[in-house]
Amino acid sequence: MNDRKLKILFSIINSYIIDGEPIGSKSLADEYNMNISPATIRNEMSALEKMGFIEKAHTSSGRLPSDKGYRLFVDYILANELNENIRPNRSDRMISLLDKRYHNASDIVETATKILADLTNLTAVSVTLKNQIKKINNMELIRLSSNQVLLVAVFDNGLILNEIIHLDYEISTDELIFINNVLNDTLVGSDIKNVNENLKKLEDNLLSEYRDLMDNIHRRLEGKSYNDAERDVQIEGLGNIFNFKEYEDLSKAREFIKLFDSKDRVNKIIADRNYNNLYVSIGYENGLDELKDNTIITSYFKVNDEVVGHIGVVGLTRLNYLDVISNIIMISDLLNK
C-alpha cells in the first residue's frame, strides 16, 4: 500500500476513534489538510474499500474502518511507534503501589487492574493463572514490639503473606531468632500439605510454650494457601463503557456486561491462549459473535521467569490503540519487576 492510501486510511481510523462517526472525502480533506482534492481522496477511499480496509456506513455516505483496517493500523503501531519516549510516565505512587517488596502479590494485581481501568477509561481485566501453592519458599517473623510480630511468608507461586500477629505475652529478639531458625528448618521447602502436621510437632516439642503463636501462624498460612489460590480474576471499570455513545443502547450495554458474569468465560477471553507477549485481538478475530465489535488487548506478568497471569482491556474496536497499548505495556513492565 502506498503512503497516500496509508495516510488516508489512518486518518479515517483516527477520526472514527475520536468521534465514532463515519467520515466522507470532503470532511477528510477539510480536517486533515492532505493537500489533495476530495475527488482524489474519494478515489483512494474507493480503492481502500475494495481492498477491505474500510466499510461503507449504513446510515451515511461516509466510511469507517473494518477489522482489517484496524489490524493494519495496530501492526503499524507495534512496528513503528512504540518506544520508551511515548510510553506514559510512571508516577512514584504508581511504582510504590505495585512494589512487590511492600504488598501481597494478589493485591498488587488487583491494584494494577484498577489503575489500568483508570488510565484507559476502559474495562480492565486480569487473570492470575491457577498455580496452586506447593511449598513455602521463605518465612520470617519480625519483631515489631514486645508483643507484636510480623509474619512474612513467600510461597512458590509468587504469593506473599505479610500479617501482624498480636501476642498476649512479651517476646524477645533472641526468642524470635530461635523460633525463626526452627520454623525455617521445619517449614521452608516442605510440602504445604504438611504444614499442619509439622506445626503440631513443633507445638508438642521444641516450641510448646509458643502454642498460640504456632496456632496463629498455621491459620494465616492455611488461609493464604487455600483462599488466594481462587482469587484468579479481577474486573474493573465495567461502568466505563458508558463513556461511549454506542452503549447508550442499554441492550448493547447489557450484552457487554453479561460477558463478565462468569469467571470461567473471562478466563477464556483473556488467558486461554498460548502467548507470552502483547496480544491484540480485533473484532471477528476474537472468535465470539458477542465480541465482534470489540478489541481485546492483553499482556503478561511473570514470577521467577514463569508466566503466571495476563492483564489487559476489553473495549470497542474504535479505542485509542496507541495510548492503550502503551499503558498496558507500562503496567505489565511494573508487574514484572
Rank of each mutant, 00 (worst) to 15 (best):
T40N: 14
Y102G: 06
E44G: 00
E49T: 02
S172I: 03
V308H: 11
S326Q: 11
R254Y: 10
V313E: 02
F53S: 01
T40Q: 13
N286D: 01
Y32P: 00
I41C: 06
T59E: 15
N80S: 03
E163H: 09
K100T: 02
V324Y: 13
N33Y: 08
E255G: 10
D75Y: 01
D191W: 10
N131M: 12
R220N: 15
E236D: 04
Y321S: 10
N33T: 04
L78S: 00
Y16I: 04
R90P: 01
S145M: 10
N80D: 05
K134S: 08
S262C: 12
L78D: 03
N320D: 11
L288S: 06
K252E: 13
L119H: 08
V152E: 14
L159M: 09
S91R: 05
M139W: 14
L119I: 07
N304C: 05
N240V: 10
S66T: 13
N227V: 08
T298E: 06
Y16H: 07
N147E: 06
I328D: 02
P22I: 12
N83C: 07
Y275R: 05
I311F: 03
A112V: 10
S332L: 03
L335R: 12
N33W: 10
D261G: 14
D107M: 12
K263Q: 15
N198E: 11
G52Q: 06
M94K: 08
N327K: 14
L176F: 00
D305T: 01
N336S: 14
F53I: 04
I133K: 11
E197F: 07
L6R: 13
V74L: 06
A47W: 03
R231H: 15
G315E: 12
D272R: 08
V308R: 11
N196D: 14
R254K: 08
Y321D: 07
H58R: 13
S190Q: 15
N196G: 12
N14H: 07
T59L: 11
F73H: 09
S172H: 04
N227P: 00
I36M: 13
H310F: 15
A79Q: 11
L238H: 01
V266C: 05
N14Q: 11
N304M: 08
S15V: 04
E140W: 03
I164K: 15
I8H: 04
N276P: 00
S146E: 14
K252P: 00
E84L: 04
V109F: 12
N138T: 08
Y300F: 07
L98T: 02
D185V: 09
T40V: 13
E197M: 08
K114M: 06
S190D: 11
N304P: 04
L141R: 09
A229W: 02
E236W: 03
I311C: 04
L159V: 09
D232R: 14
T173N: 14
E222A: 05
S208N: 08
I177S: 07
R220Q: 13
L48P: 01
S60V: 11
E290I: 12
L288H: 06
F260Y: 12
S11H: 02
K263L: 14
V233Y: 01
A124V: 06
I177K: 12
Y102I: 09
V303W: 15
S281Y: 01
A271S: 12
E248S: 09
V154T: 13
N274R: 10
V233H: 01
R4M: 14
